[in-house]
Structures are given as structure tokens and as C-alpha cells.
Design a protein around this nucleic acid. Structure first.
Length: 518
DNA sequence: CTACTGCCTG
DNA sequence: CAGGCAGTAG
């Protein structure tokens, strides 16, 4: 089995064969079509996830009367740099746009840029929005919509992946007879549904198939038309999304006789998608092939962005020439010298979208969310974990997490409150009963909920902690703790101190302070 | 009956 | 942190 894998990865002939196929116009047309659909879906996702935040942000800017690049002061530093990054990107894109000489889609490009900027700024959000006040009314409707989009986007991604895997399976056919990659049987037994079946089938059978094509294609085609119908003057195929003349080519032209195209447009996954998938890029300890669920879950899940040098956060990279290259025993799809898809990456990408359970990354994010909300509703959880497929089990598991978080929180509060009472009695010294960032209690809390210390603990959480500490203190001091349910009152006070989560938590993955600044 | 909380345990 | 349980609210 391992030898087969080794064998698959060896031999330059197969590589060139794959390269040749990758250059095949028909294949690339299919690829472009799929990626274009992905792009359309991404835009919709952006509308679902980003629109609200965008509105709020604009509101804020209007009120403050300043732009982010005009702000000054230490607290605003993150946003300052973010703004610079964004404007740099914008310049690059402007050039790209001019090259394309295409009118009419300006609005959409702006939308994408808005999304990109929004995302970057979300990443920089480390301070809580506490002045916000009441929760949003339209939360649920948008949430439903987002869930639906999530599913659709998932299968669209899977279809693009299928195309890539097709290249691999073709390569396998040429290199070694019936190459079969063994996965964990449990994985295949999962009810992963069509998405998993699609690419799983390709892998296990080692043959090229056209999974679930007709109906879903039709649906998505319709979807696409719906999107475009909002801009009736617009061409269906945007030049930035497709090859110059992809479709008119004879579909069965022998690949060898294909004239070699010098350039083609290949949009990369949107930055948010990249972030969603980026976790798969950071696990050198993972086996080259077939990372099992166990490996995946045990690996450090936290999103880091050090590899973004090879994974640029741009919606488009302009005109690129995609090809397959090999590096360190792995295959990469390369465009413009930038590798952005490896076999392992693709597998993990599938995994992210089809996995049933919760990953350590989700746990980490949940812990950070605890800084804001001690008693999240299941609806809140669904809203802020858009990459999680919720069912009863998953929901209760996540709720259980927060129950455990609270338990730890209250245990610490009671412990320190009792210590404070003791100190007051024995030494007659009045304790300050505060949870400043220099205190032991803070250190313990931060260690528990923010172990890697990459997130700035919001000031409000410290305030809430102080309230809890004082409540425990006074209850103990006045002897109320003799009542068997003396903590109930304290819980009731604390649960009213929940606050809205920053919009950065709406995105898949973990919001990390300064994560894109290195 | 479900959904949620909290307590206890390993 | 998860499993099991009892209790509560709707």
C-alpha cells in the first residue's frame, strides 16, 4: 500500500502527462466553469456573512467621520496597518482591472473588494462591540440563508476538487495499475452524503467518473443565471473567470494537438475560503496521504497564517498559467508560480466541508467566544460556527463545552473569593477583589480560555469576572453560601452580562489578533 | 416531550 | 472534557 503510494509519486513521465492534461482546453473550460460558479457562490456567501458587518462598519465610519487609514492612536494600530495592506491590494487589483478592459462588472469587483477589506478588518477586530446593545432581529432569517449557502458552497467546492482529483486519478492510471488509496473504513461509512461520495468514489475506485452531474449542474446553472439576472447587461461569462474562448473548442480534440495557450485566467479561492481551508496547510506532521480523522483532530488546529506568502489573500491573481508541479513528494497545482493546491490540501479541504463532528479548532474558537458570552443560545452557536454541520449531537456537545467553561469559571471565582475572605479575616486586610491583567486569577483564566495567548482578552470579560468575584465574595462573607443553591443568584447575574460577539467570529476559523500581520 | 442547566464523576 | 443524571421550563 505504501509502496503503491510511493510508486504513484514517482516518474516524471506521469507528471508531464498530467501537465499536458491540465493544459487541455476542454478540461480547463470545465475547471473554469466550476470555479466561476464557486466565485458566484462566494459572492453570495459574502452577502450573507459580510453584509451586516459592512453596514455597521459604514455606519461607524460615518459617525466617527474618519477613515481607518486616518485614525491614530495605539488601539487603532491594527486597523491602520490593515488599511495599508488593503490599499496596496486595491492598487494591484486596479492594474489587473485595467488590463482586462471590461466594463459593467465594476460593481461586482467593488463588492469583492469590499468583502476582502471587510474580512481583513474583521481579522483585526479584537475589541468587543459592547455599545451594540440589543441583538439583531434579522439574525435568524440570515442564518437560515447562510446555512443553505453553506451546503451549496460545500458541494460546489467538492466539484472543483473532483476536477483536481481527476487529474490525480488519471495520473494513477498511467503510473500503477488500479491504484487504491485506503481510507479509514469509518470515513467511508459516514453518511457524508453526495459531496463525500463524489470524491471518495474517485479515490477508492481510482477511475474517472462523472459524479452527480446532471441535476446539480442544472440547479447551479439556474442559480448562476439568477445571480446574473440582477445585472441583465452583463455577459454571463466574465473574462476574469473563464479562459478567453473556452467553450467553442471541439470537446473531443486530442489533447496533444491542442495549441498551447500562453495565459489563462484562474481565479483563486476567495480569502475567506482560503482561511477556512488554510488549516490543512499547516500540519507538516500529517502523513502525505490520507490523513485520518484522528490525525486531523489531534493536530494543532489553530489557524496560523505564516504560509500566506505562498497563499496570497487576493480574490484574483489575474492572468495565470496553471500547471501541476511536484514538490517534496507532493503535487501542487501552480498558477503564476504560486502553489495553492496540494493533494493533502485537497483532501483536507474536502474534510473541512464534510466532516460531521467538531474539531479542536472549533473548541478553541468556542473558548474565545466565552470571553463574550457565557450562555450562548444554540442559535448563536449556529450563527457563529458557519462551517459546522449542526445536528442534535453536535449542538449539545457545544453547549456542553460552554457548560464546562462556566464550571471552570465559577470554580475559580469561588476559589479566589474564598481566599479573599480568608485574607480579610486572618490578616484583616481588605482585598481589592479585582481581576486586572496583572492578577493571578486573570492569568489562570487566560491560560484556560486563551492558552496560546493569541487573542486579546476583552476588557469586558475582565469586568464580568470582577462582578462574579465580588458576588461570590459577598455571598461567602455574609454566610449565604450555607444555602445549598446559593450560587443560583450569582449565575443569574452573570448570565445577564453576556454581550454580542464581534463580527470576526462570524467567519469560519478562529479570529486571531494580528494574525495577518505576522 | 425537548432543550437546556448544573452537579458529579472519571 | 465527556458521560450520566436530576431538575426545570416551555
Amino acid at each position: 500500500q505504501m509502496e503503491q503510494e510511493e510508486g504513484m509519486m514517482e516518474g516524471e513521465d506521469e507528471l508531464t502527462e498530467v501537465k499536458r492534461k491540465c493544459n487541455d482546453t476542454v478540461l480547463m473550460a470545465e475547471w473554469s466553469q466550476d470555479v466561476m460558479k464557486l466565485q458566484a457562490l462566494q459572492e453570495k456567501v459574502w452577502r450573507a456573512f459580510g453584509e451586516k458587518a459592512e453596514k455597521e462598519e459604514k455606519k461607524t465610519k460615518r459617525l466617527s467621520g474618519t477613515r481607518c487609514d486616518e485614525d491614530e492612536g495605539t488601539v487603532e494600530d491594527e486597523e491602520d496597518v490593515t488599511g495599508e495592506i488593503f490599499h496596496k491590494r486595491k492598487d494591484e487589483l486596479q492594474k489587473d482591472r485595467e488590463r482586462r478592459t471590461e466594463r459593467g462588472r465594476e460593481g461586482d469587483m467593488e463588492g469583492i473588494m469590499e468583502g476582502s477589506r471587510l474580512w481583513l478588518e474583521c481579522g483585526g477586530l479584537t475589541r468587543g462591540d459592547w455599545d451594540g446593545g440589543a441583538e439583531d432581529e434579522d439574525e435568524e432569517g440570515g442564518q437560515k440563508f447562510a446555512q443553505a449557502l453553506k451546503l451549496e458552497l460545500g458541494s460546489a467546492v467538492a466539484r472543483v476538487i473532483d476536477r483536481v482529483l481527476r487529474l490525480y486519478t488519471e495520473m494513477m492510471d498511467h503510473s500503477s495499475p488500479p491504484a487504491t488509496i485506503s481510507f479509514h473504513p469509518s470515513d467511508q461509512a459516514q453518511d457524508g452524503g453526495k459531496v463525500r461520495d463524489g470524491w471518495m468514489g474517485l479515490l477508492t475506485r481510482g477511475r474517472v467518473e462523472e459524479p452527480m452531474k446532471e441535476k446539480e449542474d442544472g440547479d447551479r446553472e439556474q442559480q448562476l443565471k439568477n445571480i446574473n439576472s440582477s445585472h441583465p447587461n452583463l455577459p454571463l461569462h466574465h473574462p476574469s473567470l473563464t479562459r478567453p474562448t473556452p467553450l467553442p473548442h471541439p470537446p473531443l480534440l486530442p489533447p496533444a494537438s491542442q495549441p498551447k495557450e500562453t495565459s489563462s485566467s484562474l481565479p483563486l479561492l476567495h480569502y475567506s475560503m482560503q482561511q477556512l481551508f488554510s488549516r490543512s496547510l499547516h500540519h507538516p506532521q500529517l502523513p502525505h496521504l490520507a490523513p485520518s480523522r484522528k490525525d486531523y483532530l489531534n493536530s494543532d488546529p489553530f489557524l496560523e497564517f505564516s504560509s500566506h506568502a505562498s497563499f496570497p489573500p487576493l480574490p484574483f491573481l489575474g492572468h495565470l498559467d496553471p500547471s501541476l508541479t511536484r514538490h517534496g513528494g507532493e503535487l501542487y497545482l501552480t498558477a503564476g508560480g504560486i502553489s495553492f493546491l496540494s493533494f493533502e490540501f485537497v483532501l483536507n479541504l474536502c474534510h473541512v466541508y464534510t466532516q460531521e463532528g467538531l474539531s479542536p479548532c472549533h473548541l478553541k474558537k468556542a473558548k474565545l467566544m466565552f470571553f463574550y458570552t457565557r450562555y450562548p443560545s444554540s442559535n448563536t452557536l449556529k450563527t457563529y460556527f458557519p462551517d459546522v454541520k449542526f445536528n442534535r449531537c453536535v449542538t449539545s456537545q457545544m453547549i456542553k463545552w460552554f457548560s464546562n467553561f462556566r464550571e471552570f469559571f465559577y470554580i475559580q471565582m469561588e476559589r479566589f473569593a474564598r481566599q479573599a475572605v480568608r485574607d480579610a479575616l486572618t490578616r484583616g486586610r481588605e482585598n481589592q477583589l479585582r481581576v486586572g491583567r496583572d492578577t493571578e486569577l486573570y492569568r489562570i483564566l487566560n491560560m484556560h480560555y486563551n492558552k496560546s495567548n493569541v487573542y486579546q482578552v476583552p476588557e469586558r470579560f475582565i469586568e464580568v469576572s470582577e462582578v462574579a468575584l465580588r458576588e461570590f465574595y459577598s455571598a461567602i462573607w455574609t454566610g449565604r453560601d450555607s444555602d445549598p443553591c446559593w450560587k443560583k443568584g450569582i449565575y443569574k447575574i452573570i448570565c445577564k452580562l453576556d454581550s454580542p460577539l464581534p463580527d470576526a467570529f462570524r467567519m469560519p476559523g478562529c479570529p486571531v489578533k494580528n494574525h495577518y500581520l505576522g
